[in-house]
């Protein structure tokens, strides 16, 4: 039988899905044991016990100096910045995506500008943002927004333009005004796409967040990683990276669930 026709059963599927994760952990464990056998004070691949110890120290023991639980304070700071930036970027994408997608005049005005803007490498703007907006929260949030909003806008514009011409004509023959067509026909159909766009941009958003925190911050997951890097504290860095990944994965799944729950019709088209 051809390989393209072989399909795994549910159990096999699950096992196969777990396999790469397990292999990664095993590889790490073996590497760690080998290196530590050679040099007990090796810091590169700390033993699982040291990782647990570090998590314990960061997450469940109050910091001696500030009295805070650093892990949670960092998480809160990072998620706050990220949430704010994603919210602003989503709002921008929605407004401009619909305006540019629906109205030829606004498209003529803004589409070339957007195409150019989205090519500016956001990290190159970071020094400008720090100089202009200071080292506080504003510059970090702005960096993320600048990094992801243009792509989200362009994605939504394409989605609006993809709406069948027939639908918009039909809506007009039913007496809809531009505004009514916008909120009853266009908006509900691009919202699911907006959620998907947000999911796809989560990775970039984290990238810009860590980059901004690495350069200037006094809390945050990225800040902590770059701080303890000075002491080669891999026992802290590994759990932090795993935690960031987990947060991103959870956000991704949660957004997908949200789309299915709020817009059940988006799943119907796929079945046929």
């Amino acid at each position: 039988m051809r390989f393209i026709n072989l399909k795994p059963s549910r159990t096999t599927q699950l096992m196969l899905a777990v396999l790469p994760f397990a292999l990664l952990v095993i590889a790490y464990g073996v590497g760690s044991v080998v290196r530590l056998a050679e040099n007990p004070s090796d810091k590169l691949l700390p033993a699982f016990a040291s990782l647990v110890d570090a998590i314990n120290r960061m997450a469940f023991t109050a910091d001696v100096r500030s009295g805070e639980y650093l892990f949670w304070a960092d998480t809160l700071a990072s998620l706050g910045r990220l949430g704010m930036a994603l919210g602003i970027a989503t709002a921008i994408a929605l407004v401009f995506g619909m305006l540019v997608g629906m109205f030829p005049y606004i498209r003529a005005l803004l589409a070339p500008f957007l195409a150019a803007i989205s090519m500016v490498p956001p990290l190159a703007l970071l020094p400008i943002l720090f100089i202009a907006l200071g080292l506080g929260e504003t510059s970090k949030v702005t960096l993320i927004v600048i990094g992801i909003a243009p792509i989200m806008v362009r994605d939504l514009v394409l989605r609006v333009l993809d709406l069948p011409r027939e639908q918009l004509i039909k809506a007009q023959t039913l007496g809809g005004s531009s505004w009514q067509i916008g909120i009853r026909v266009v908006l509900p159909q691009i919202l699911p796409r907006l959620i998907d766009g947000l999911r796809l941009q989560l990775g970039s958003a984290w990238l810009f967040l860590i980059a901004a925190e690495a350069i200037s911050a006094d809390s945050g997951l990225g800040y902590r990683i770059f701080l303890v890097r000075r002491y080669l504290s891999m026992d802290v860095i590994f759990p932090y990276v795993a935690w960031i990944t987990l947060l991103a994965v959870v956000a991704n799944v949660a957004l997908d669930l949200l789309r299915r729950r709020v817009f059940p019709w988006t799943e119907l088209g796929k079945a046929t």
């Binding site: 069948p164 011409r165 027939e166 639908q167 004509i169 039909k170 809506a171 159909q189 817009f263």
Partner: peptide, 9 residues
């Protein structure tokens, strides 16, 4: 129209 006359959402 032949297609896309109704609103899928």
């Amino acid at each position: 129209f032949q297609r896309y006359s109704v609103f899928p959402h």
